[in-house]
Design a protein around this nucleic acid. Structure first.
Lengths: 114, 114
DNA sequence: TCGTTGATCAACCATTTGGTTGATTACATC
DNA sequence: GATGTAATCAACCAAATGGTTGATCAACGA
């Protein structure tokens, strides 16, 4: 994944309104007006949030007459967890390796004393 | 997870320098100077990035004399993938459900024509 | 064709952010 | 104690961000 893609995706998720939109869209597609309803901000502001999410590739939009419903893209979310997991798993692997070294040292110490 | 925590964590990841720091720390702990070395920015800027990561709970810091090494926290990363997966899995579930409905309709259509 | 509704565009404002330089703190070593 | 080094603090700057209001575009329904 390119830097720009990850920049856009993570900063898109770094806002509670946009995360709420993600949560809502995970249940079903929805239009801007439907998404705006639960928020205390203007429809224009929601429209901006949606553009950010779309630009980040997290959602897609279709045409349905006058409406332009938004759909969550699970594959984009999976790409993000994939990135995070790469480093989480590596870190966990390193910690286990360190634990192994420490217990080896401890064993050697016990052996020396016995 | 609270909104503020997620805000801090995701916006911490929304910067290529900070992601590079995460990647570096997944292999082993490192000090500010070590982390700053591969970058074309000042040590102070790196120090700021590290504070952002620490504030977000993604890394921890310890004292080793004059040095203050940074350590990646895998559990914090796991919390993020957990959040994302909640909605990714729900979206995938909904898409499968929709596919089921569509194929049922298609079957009924075939039956009617036969 | 005309009014209504979904949605975006445009301009503007306050705040945040990523970077800089220069000064300062804290620890280690001579 | 004096010097050097790891790291942060402080003040500042340019650019990006999240929000507003007002105007505009595009499609539907009478």
């Amino acid at each position: 994944m390119e830097d720009d893609t990850l920049d856009a995706a993570f900063s898109a998720l770094a806002d509670p309104a946009r995360r709420a939109i993600i949560a809502r869209l995970s249940r079903s597609s929805a239009t801007v007006n439907e998404l705006a309803e639960p928020f205390a901000i203007t429809k224009q502001a929601v429209s901006k949030h949606i553009q950010v999410l779309e630009q980040a590739g997290l959602i897609t939009r279709t045409r349905d007459g006058q409406r332009r419903p938004c759909h969550l893209d699970p594959a984009a979310l999976e790409a993000l967890t994939g990135w995070i997991d790469t480093y989480r798993l590596e870190a966990e692997r390193q910690y286990r390796r360190l634990d192994g070294v420490l217990s080896t040292l401890k064993d050697q110490h016990s052996k020396e004393r016995s």
